[in-house]
Structures are given as structure tokens and as C-alpha cells.
Amino acid sequence: MSVSVEGLLIFAFAVALGVIVAKIIGIYIRRTLAEKIPKNELNLILKIVNVTIIAVFVLFALPFVGVNPSGLIAAGGFAGLVVGFASRSVVANLVSGIFLMAERPVRIGDQIMVGDVAGFVEDIQILSTIIRTYDGLFVRIPNEKMFTSNIVNLVANPVRRFEYVIGISYKDDAERAIEIIRRVIDEHPFALKNPEPQIFVDELGESSVNIVVRVWSPSSVWYDAKTEILWKIKVELEKAGIEIPFPQRVVWLRRGKDELGKDVSA
């Protein structure tokens, strides 16, 4: 195999051209995506694009240094088949990752639920998504699973609603309880004025008159608002002498004779 100086120069020129083209396209991609995707993902995309462009130029320039790329392709075909089978899930995760980045159902910092995992999105990488659960655990979810699962984004909308069912005793005044609950909600800064909170008697239960309370709150603080308001309602109802009863059953004991005239004493 003889390699001419001219062939070597052309090969070197093609590789240099490939590097320049890769650089220009890299700059364009960086400018376009810089504020749209996280830095680590951007770097990964840039690396992939860079390597692919240079590889294409090298492939086209190989004949000038006496290497037939078709031979490489034939050799690489079998190897590619083996690697392809071995890396099927990697490719699936990669493609899912790209689709997740394009569709953007979640962002870093969002609170989400995927299957039985709930927590904050720490990072969205090209192959996996990292979740920090509420109890501080690190969970890595492969992007293929993310892509095919039902994702519940708890903070995608600016506000969300929470609900309580508060049971009060039958002897207490439900209208007064509603008035107290409304006052507690009105005083809480993050119980939104609009959409208006709803407070109403929903059910005459076995042990209590059940009042449903529905409150909207900014998504970023809804959990704090939910816990604070519930406790304040409990405290204020107690202060007003309104009882939140335990489950109970009234049993009547009868004394006298039954239908057949026998004595009954239990």
C-alpha cells in the first residue's frame, strides 16, 4: 500500500476541515441551546456532535491514504451488531433522554412523582434522571422508564388545591365551625383569595358531621400551607369548644320483657 504526499495532505486537510466545521456547528449549538438545557447535557451533546462530524470527514478522507472504508464498514458491521444488541437499553435510554429534553415534562428543581418515587428532580442527564426523594434518598431513574411512565409534576402549574375533611360533633354548630375555618383560611397568606376556598358540610357521617375544606395555594408552598392551616383549624375549633370526635357507636341497653314475655336485662 503506497501513500502519496498529496494523499496525506488531502487527508490532513479533510481532518482539519472537519475540526473547523465541528467547531462552527458547536458554537452555533452552544448559542442556541445555552439557556434552554442544563450545562452538563449541552456539553454531552457538543461532544457527540463534534465526534460525529470529525468521524464523517475522516471516513471520506480515508481513501486518500489508501484505506478502503468499505472494508472497515464490513468489519464494523458485525461488531456493530454485537455492540448494538449489548447496548440496546443504553440506546433506548439515550433516545428517551433526547425526547425528554425536547418535550420537557419536568425541569430541574420540580417536584414530581414517577411510579412509587416522589421527590425533587436533581438532574436530567442524557441516560437517566436523578431524583432526591423527600426523605433525602438518591434515586436514579433510567430515561426509558421516565419516558414510558406516567409522570405527575406537582409544580407544573402555578397553583394547586388541597383538601381536608374535618368531622365535628353532632351537638356542635356546623355554621359556626365553617365561620371559624373560613377565618383561619382568610388569615393565612398563602391560602389564595382567588380561586376562592370552598367550605361546606359534605356528609352526615357515623360519628361526625363532615365538613369539606378546599383551599388553593401557590404550588411552591402548598405543603407548608396545608400543614399550617390544618393545625390552626384544629386549635381554633378547640378554642371555640367545637369537638372533633373520635369514631363512636351508640349502644342502647334495654330492660323489660321481649315479644314472648320473657325478661330482658341486657
Binding site: 402555578p158 383569595k193 382567588n194 401557590p218
Partner: peptide, 19 residues
């Protein structure tokens, strides 16, 4: 003051506001 917040618009596209 006692701050209070509200939503201007709908729960999907609206904005949270100090009221």
C-alpha cells in the same frame, strides 16, 4: 401588613400575585 396572595388568571396559565 398581613400579606395575602391570589391567582390572576386560571390555574394552568395564570400568575400568583400579592393581593
Amino acid at each position: 401588613d398581613k400579606p395575602k396572595y391570589t391567582l390572576y388568571g386560571n390555574p394552568k396559565n395564570g400568575v400568583v400575585c400579592r393581593w
